[in-house]
């Protein structure tokens, strides 16, 4: 055994994009893998569950966990990896805020299952069969993990030491986080390892963002053309830059599309959707009730938009009626 720090990477309810971003470290990945021992990483290496079970508590220096927690098995793995690791780092929006998969909290578990297995137009399921947690066939017992009612963020299940934000985080941020661990120069525990300021502060279009925005109409991207140099809000297109943490290199803006908030809120904000609601309201330049209602009604799906990445971590965590059967 070498004396190198041990690193593990694991995915929960995730899309795999956070893992791809690690692979996108490209040549830097070779530098990192030379400096550490990767002891568990299902996407790329053949170590198995039992190898992790066999490790001592605290044996792993740092574990990066991406994905939200939806299945019983994921919760179990997160808890086990927590025990085996000195540091647990939430890797990406899903682990951090629930991410896009957290939008499932708008619906009840039953609604998801029945849509998927009983209602879609391709389905042929006359008996309305749903997957079962346990199936016994000729004495062979096969289990499926539990599908929880609610999507949770990683820090709702285990203690999280640090967070790398973004859907996915940029390779540079991942590398920097790894280097912080290796060089023992981590900021205070609990920090989000990215920019402290809002995206607007580093946006290439910020110079065209008026000091006082005055909006009398919100336009949707499909029905309008815009100036590819100007601030989206100045053009009447909703951009969540003012309510979003910077650090992504303004990826979407550079592709001429508005921000959707994947880096989550800045440190002083508890609820991303509430924050987005209030900044957006503040730039509407109308106070006549009828006109106001018309403008606001034209925002498509404000709940889904403002909580695009942060529903599971929001104050209400999702739809209030979710748990009711």
């Amino acid at each position: 055994m070498t004396g190198k720090p041990k690193i593990a990477l694991y995915w929960c309810s995730s899309c795999g994009g956070c893992e791809e971003s690690v692979i996108d470290l490209a040549e830097d990945l070779l530098t990192v893998t030379a400096a550490v021992d990767i002891v568990f990483w299902p996407v790329a290496l053949d170590f198995k569950y039992k190898d992790v079970v066999a490790m001592n508590d605290g044996e792993i220096t740092a574990t990066l966990i991406n994905g939200a927690i939806r299945m019983g098995e994921q919760e179990h793995m997160a808890k086990m990896l927590r025990k085996k690791s000195r540091l647990v780092i939430a890797h990406g929006s899903c682990a951090h805020l629930g991410g896009v998969v957290g939008l499932a909290n708008f619906y009840r578990r039953e609604d998801l299952l029945s849509r998927l297995y009983q209602e879609v137009p391709t389905i042929n399921n006359p008996q309305g069969i749903l997957p079962q947690l346990e199936t016994i066939e000729s004495g062979r017992k096969v289990k499926l993990p539990d599908f929880h009612d609610t999507v949770k963020t990683l820090d709702q299940v285990v203690e999280v030491d640090y967070t790398i934000p973004g859907c996915p985080p940029t390779p540079e941020l991942i590398k920097e986080a790894m280097m912080m661990v290796l060089e023992d120069r981590l900021p205070p525990r609990g920090s989000v390892l990215a920019e402290k300021k809002a995206l607007c502060d580093t946006c290439p279009r910020r110079d065209s963002k008026p000091d006082k925005l005055r909006i009398t109409e919100f336009k949707r991207v499909y029905e309008t053309e815009w100036d590819p140099e100007k601030c989206f809000l100045a053009e009447g297109i909703i951009c969540l830059g003012p309510a979003t943490r910077g650090g992504c290199n303004a990826r979407c803006i550079n592709a001429n599309m508005p921000c959707r908030g994947c880096f989550g809120p800045t440190d002083d904000v508890r609820d991303q959707g509430a924050k987005s609601s209030s900044f957006l309201a503040s730039i509407i330049d109308v106070t006549d009730k009828e006109a106001l209602k018309k403008i606001v009604d034209a925002i498509p799906d404000p709940g889904g938009l403002f909580y695009r990445y942060g529903l599971a971590s929001s104050i209400l965590k999702g739809k209030m009626t979710r748990g009711r059967s």
């Binding site: 499932a104 998801l112 299952l113 499926l144």
Partner: peptide
């Protein structure tokens, strides 16, 4: 062992 439910949400 995974399910997310995009078709609904």
């Amino acid at each position: 062992p995974e399910l997310r439910g995009f078709e609904k949400f």
